[in-house]
C-alpha cells in the first residue's frame, strides 16, 4: 500500500475558497420534474441530518452539508482515493416554489428534496372569448 492518490468521480465545487482551508465538494445530483413539482436527489455521503442546511431565497436553492472527517483512532491514512470535505451546490429555480413546502429527507447519504409547485404557478388554461 503506497501513499498515492487516484481520481474518483467526486469533484470540487467551483466556489471561492473557504476561510478554514477545508475543501468543498459538489454533490452529484439527479433532478426529475413531474406535473406536481421538482424532485432533487443529491449524493452527500457523511452528512448527518443535523448538519444539513437547505434554503430557497430569490429563486436560488442552496444546499449545504457539513462533513465530519472520519479519521479512525490511532490509524494513519496510507492510501487515498477520495477527498473529504463539506458539500455545497446552488441551483437557480425556474419557477416560484414555496420555501415553506419544501420537503427534505436524508437516507444513506442521499438527500431527497421535493419542491411542490406553488398553486399560482401551475399552468392555467385561459379561455379565449370570441369577439
Amino acid at each position: 500500500m503506497a501513499k498515492d492518490v487516484t481520481k474518483s468521480d467526486k469533484r470540487e465545487a467551483d466556489m471561492p475558497e473557504t476561510t478554514h482551508g477545508g475543501r468543498v465538494f459538489r454533490p452529484l445530483a439527479d433532478i426529475v420534474e413531474t406535473g406536481d413539482g421538482v424532485q432533487l436527489m443529491l449524493e452527500m455521503p457523511g452528512v448527518a441530518p443535523d448538519d444539513l442546511e437547505v434554503t430557497l431565497e430569490n429563486r436560488v436553492l442552496t444546499i449545504r452539508g457539513r462533513v465530519h472527517a472520519t479519521a479512525p483512532e490511532k490509524l494513519e491514512l496510507v492510501h487515498a482515493e477520495y477527498g473529504e470535505g463539506d458539500f455545497e451546490r446552488t441551483f437557480t429555480m425556474s419557477d416560484d416554489f414555496d420555501p415553506e413546502k419544501i420537503e427534505a429527507a436524508l437516507s444513506d447519504g442521499v438527500l431527497t428534496l421535493t419542491l411542490p409547485r406553488a398553486e399560482a404557478a401551475k399552468p392555467r388554461k385561459i379561455e379565449v372569448k370570441a369577439a
Binding site: 487516484t6 474518483s8 468521480d9 496510507v78 477520495y82
Partner: peptide, 12 residues
C-alpha cells in the same frame, strides 16, 4: 472510475 473509491488507514 472504480467504484467505490476507498481510503485505507493503517496502524500497528
Amino acid at each position: 472510475p472504480v467504484f467505490p473509491a476507498v481510503n485505507i488507514w493503517q496502524g500497528d
